[in-house]
């Protein structure tokens, strides 16, 4: 019998636990040329700011071994264009939309949530707190438990009550559990992890940094063990809090690994650049991996690696 991949996200039932990662699938439109977006668990849209943003200068990207660095700088048309154009399009295609929001002050995040509250059809909000806080000397919200909590509180207060709010955590912290706790106490309904790790590449021909922005976010399979570790630590400390795991997932096997560590859903980012139909393929592969292990429901294996003697299952 085929395993049951259905997964609950707040009040919505997803057909499977595989999502796109924010910033790696636009708002789904381009992917629809290659894959049926309604068959992906949910589309997590690119983090949207209040106003249009031009982003950072180029070069914005450098390939690394099993990974890439990016410094896009949240280029996008702003929330009004998103609500007028992108969200309705996704809904018209029968896709489920998880809307990622970003901001540079606590108030901005709250405002964004309020704006979204006016829109129907949002499955969940993912709060990208890996942005510099202009009111705190540019310190990244996700690196400070107090700032992170303040953002989540502001968003939770103004979002529709039935729409779950997920805080997206950065791995670039000493104690990710402390940040996770603070977000959950501030009202986060779930946690997404991990965002990219800060990295740098120097071009040895030009002898200059490869990115115009000097540093960039590292993603791809190179970071997967970091993601597994973060999901493991947080799910150990906060059992029962839903986790969207991500970081270097290329195959169904990789998705299974993050689920075993404690993620109930898995986002796919950089893999999409390599294979525009990656999400559909990973759903298929996850299905096969579970079937091969005799697992009937995907939810059964979430966090299973934490159980003693997990390896004994046949």
């Amino acid at each position: 019998m085929a395993p049951d991949l259905r997964t609950r996200l707040g009040g919505t039932e997803l057909p499977n636990p595989i999502l796109t990662a924010s910033g790696c699938a636009g708002s789904g439109r381009e992917l629809a040329q290659f894959t049926d977006v309604s068959k992906i668990g949910a589309i997590v849209t690119k983090s949207v700011m209040l106003a249009p943003r031009a982003g950072r200068p180029t070069p914005r990207m450098a390939e690394t071994s099993s990974g890439m660095l990016n410094s896009i700088g949240l280029q996008g048309p702003g929330i009004d264009a998103f609500l007028q154009r992108d969200l309705p399009w996704l809904l018209s295609r029968g896709a489920r939309a998880v809307v990622s929001i970003a901001g540079s002050t606590v108030e901005e995040f709250g405002e964004r949530a309020a704006r979204l509250a006016g829109a129907a059809g949002v499955t969940a909000i993912e709060v990208n707190i890996s942005c510099p806080n202009v009111e705190h000397r540019g310190q990244v919200f996700a690196c400070d438990p107090v700032d992170a909590g303040a953002v989540i509180e502001a968003v939770r207060a103004r979002a529709r009550p039935e729409v779950p709010v997920f805080a997206k955590l950065s791995p670039d912290v000493t104690d990710i559990v402390a940040i996770a706790r603070s977000c959950v106490s501030a009202g986060a309904d779930g946690l997404s992890m991990i965002n990219t790790l800060l990295g740098m590449v120097i071009d040895t021909e030009t002898m200059r940094p490869a990115l115009a922005g000097l540093t960039g976010g590292l993603s791809g399979p190179a970071i997967r063990p970091v993601a597994v570790r973060c999901v493991w630590q947080v799910s150990q400390a906060l059992p029962g809090v839903p986790i969207i795991g991500m970081g270097g997932v290329m195959t169904g096997r990789d998705a299974l690994e993050l689920m075993l560590a404690g993620a109930s859903m898995v986002s796919v980012g950089t893999a999409i650049f390599h294979d525009p139909s990656a999400c559909a393929r990973i759903v298929r592969e996850l299905d096969e991996e579970l079937a091969r292990r005799g697992v009937e429901k995907a939810s059964e294996i979430v966090g299973l690696a934490h159980e003693a003697r997990a390896g004994r299952r046949s």
Binding site: G26, M68, I72, Q75
Partner: peptide, 11 residues
């Protein structure tokens, strides 16, 4: 990086 319009690196 992607060629299909999703990554925003080629602007």
């Amino acid at each position: 990086a992607c060629g299909i319009g999703v990554c925003m690196t080629c602007v």
